[in-house]
Amino acid sequence: MSAVMETTMNENPKPAAASAAAVSTAAATPVVKTKSKQPKRSPLMAGLLMKVLPPLTGLAFLVLVWQIIAAKTGNFPTPLVTLQEAIKLFSDPFYRTGPNDQGIGWNVLASLQRVAIGFGLAALVGIPLGFLIGRVRFLSGMFGPIISLLKPVSPLAWLPIGLLVFKSANPAAIWSIFICSIWPMIINTAVGVQRVPQDYMNVARVLNLSEWKILTKILFPSVLPYMLTGVRLAIGTAWLVIVAAEMLTGGVGIGFWVWDEWNNLNVPHIIIAIVVIGVVGLILEQLLVALAKAFTYEQVSN
């Protein structure tokens, strides 16, 4: 019996060993998956492409629509004709041959000067008034109805009042900028003061801080983001108003330049002026956005 078992065990080891070797070989052999070769794209290049491609696509779409409109309308200038006129115009933007014949550079500077004066006066009046309205409840109730009544009035509706009071076109245009710029500053500053956490004011009361300390150490840092938002809204409105005001008052300015070119039926120059107005407004907006980001702090949660 034992002899038979030994004989059987001696006859079967080769297949068992072979199958074990096959299993171990199959387990040891790595499975190779073929991958399609794709060009590697740098994350930096991909991010740059996503930033550049959409604006360029939008500009190309705008030029295409412009070209279609110019092709359908016989008296509308094509993008190429406008570009050629722009090259001529910006080759000497600061020429001056008379009081009513000046380059586009002088007209833009004149408009910016009016905006700076009117906007500066609005900031000098509107920001302190916003602090007072937000701080004193009696003043909030006093000026609230006045602001609600006058804020929806179109800025150009104030232009005849300016002409009547100041007897001159330039101060009247500055007055229009002032009256349209002051409301966003007052409202946003007052709202910022009213949203200061009450805990801050309680601590100031416990420490017996003076009103000046409360203003400089508590209110101003807390209200600054709201105040800068009002300033950003005001500068956009002021730049819109000055163009319309200069069309009505005349003189030197980008608005008057647009109206003068319309009287001369120089449509390419009108389109160039529209682009210049948009670019200048965009630059002013982005400068104030950068200023607001520099002074805005986010709360970090633990």
Rank of each mutant, 00 (worst) to 15 (best):
V193M: 07
S176M: 01
L139K: 07
I187Q: 12
I174Q: 09
E85M: 10
D199C: 11
A116T: 15
K167G: 11
L149Q: 09
D101S: 02
G192Y: 04
L159N: 08
T78N: 11
K213I: 00
K88M: 08
S91F: 08
P197Q: 05
A190Q: 05
F143I: 03
D101V: 05
L80F: 14
I186R: 07
Q198L: 10
Y95M: 01
A122N: 08
V115W: 03
A173L: 03
F94D: 13
V193C: 08
V153G: 05
I182P: 04
D92R: 05
A172N: 12
M201P: 01
P197M: 00
E211Q: 12
L207C: 02
G141S: 13
E85Q: 12
P184L: 07
P93D: 12
L132Q: 05
L112Y: 00
A116H: 06
I174F: 01
P184C: 03
V165R: 08
Y95N: 09
N202V: 05
A86E: 01
L207S: 00
N202M: 13
I104E: 06
P99N: 10
F131V: 06
W183Q: 04
A116V: 06
G141R: 02
S154G: 06
G118P: 05
P160I: 08
A123V: 10
L215S: 06
K151E: 15
V203Q: 00
Q113N: 09
V108H: 04
F131Y: 15
N188A: 11
V191E: 14
I104N: 08
C180S: 15
I146V: 11
R135F: 02
I146Q: 03
T216F: 10
L149P: 05
A86V: 08
I187C: 11
L129M: 10
G105K: 11
P79A: 02
L121P: 03
A204N: 06
W183L: 08
W175Y: 14
P99Q: 07
N100M: 01
A190S: 13
S168F: 10
W175A: 09
L159P: 05
S91L: 05
N202L: 15
Q198T: 06
L132D: 03
R135C: 08
A116M: 03
T78V: 12
L132P: 00
G103Q: 10
W106S: 09
A122S: 15
L163G: 10
L149A: 12
I104S: 11
L164I: 09
N208W: 13
P160W: 07
K88Y: 12
L83F: 14
L124H: 10
Y200S: 10
M201E: 02
F138V: 13
K217G: 09
T216Q: 14
L156T: 00
Y200D: 07
L139T: 15
F143P: 14
K88A: 09
I104M: 14
V196W: 00
L80A: 13
T78R: 04
N208Q: 11
I179W: 01
V108R: 00
N170M: 15
V115T: 02
G74D: 15
L124Y: 06
L132E: 11
L159I: 04
S140K: 11
Y95I: 14
F131A: 05
R96K: 14
L149D: 02
G141M: 09
L124I: 15
T82E: 08
R96P: 12
G134V: 06
F94M: 03
